Simulated assay, not measured.
Amino acid sequence: MKETQLNLNQTQKIRLQRALDTLHSVSSKSLSDASVTVADPIPVNLHDSSILKGHGTLDLDGELISTNCGIVERVDRLVYVRSTKSRYIPETGNVIVGRVVEVAQKVWKVDVNAYHEGSLMLASVTLLDGIQRRRNEVDELNMRNIFEENDVISVEVRNVQNNYTAQLQARSDKYGKLDRGQLIVVPCYLVKKRKQHFHQLDQYGVLIILGCNGYVWVGELIEAKDSMEVDISEQTHGGFTKSEEKEQHTTSLETRQNICRISNAVRVLAILGFNITVEVILEIFELSKSLNVEIHDMLGGEFCVLVAEKEAERRSKN
């Protein structure tokens, strides 16, 4: 928890500490959510030959000991400790959000919150026309028509090189440039790899992308148009003028408020150090609306303490 971001009075500090103690007692019973420090024992049965000891663990006198501070993770038979202070370590198949920092020859350099910038090759991107073909010199000259510096994009890790440099790809329609939204940076250990990282909230008109690298995107949900439909529309109406196109893409006030409220819900989870899932985000979103909490007041001490208490109560019941 980032205590420096919360201005709490004495009563709120006591309430928050009580909630965190409850959460710690509950999480210590679960291997997947247990937080450990150096020399803490990890509750596993080492007599089970199927157990694989991973990074951050040490077999000492028949007991599995943590060698760093972090979160105990278990992937099938592998048990390891994921550090809470390290940068993102790319893994093949991860859905991530990044920011373009450089347009080079046939490649975009992307900030992915790792030790090295990711590489997105021109051949690994779906072109604007959608046709699968070899990339030529004209495509290379038009790279900035696809992505340019400071663009926020969603991509997938294709593979990882020996120096942990991520090779990226954006071959599906769900990947690509993101706009009209907010990019929130959270510790990468708070976002776990799941089957679904794209969440379309149709009732709120919001798209949430939980990047495994700790970059979370909250933006307007835009309905993708079929390319043939767009061509017919342009032939019929002669295309949009710049003023008409700007009016066509105006985001409604209600959608902007939903984006800001959901973004602050993500920030509250990051401040408290809770795992970030779409279910918990929506619970905090609905809680703030039911209590008539203003968007800017969601980052205040009282609401954060209330969220911690609600989370402690929920986990205790589960």
Results as ranks from 00 to 15, higher is better:
M1Y: 06
L6K: 08
Q12P: 10
I14F: 05
R18H: 04
L20W: 01
K29R: 08
L31R: 08
D33S: 15
P41R: 07
V44F: 07
S49W: 03
L52I: 15
K53R: 07
I65Y: 03
S66D: 05
N68I: 11
C69M: 10
V72I: 15
V75F: 11
V79C: 07
V81C: 03
R82Y: 00
S83C: 11
P90S: 01
N94Y: 10
I96H: 02
V97I: 10
G98F: 02
E102D: 12
Q105H: 15
K109Y: 06
V110F: 05
V112S: 04
V112Y: 03
G118I: 03
I131H: 06
I131A: 06
R133D: 00
E137P: 00
L141G: 13
R144A: 14
R144M: 13
F147D: 04
E148H: 11
V152C: 06
I153D: 01
I153L: 04
N159F: 14
V160H: 07
N163P: 02
Y164I: 04
L168V: 05
Q169L: 09
A170W: 04
R171N: 14
K174W: 00
R180K: 15
R180V: 09
P187I: 06
K192Q: 15
K193W: 02
Q196E: 15
Y204A: 09
G211I: 04
C212I: 08
G214N: 05
V216H: 06
D226W: 00
D231N: 09
G239K: 12
S243D: 14
K246H: 12
T250V: 04
T251A: 05
E254R: 11
T255Y: 01
R256M: 08
C260T: 12
R261K: 11
I262E: 01
L272Q: 07
G273H: 03
T277H: 07
E279C: 02
E279H: 10
L282D: 06
L282Q: 14
F285N: 03
N292D: 15
H296S: 15
L306T: 15
S316I: 10
N318P: 00
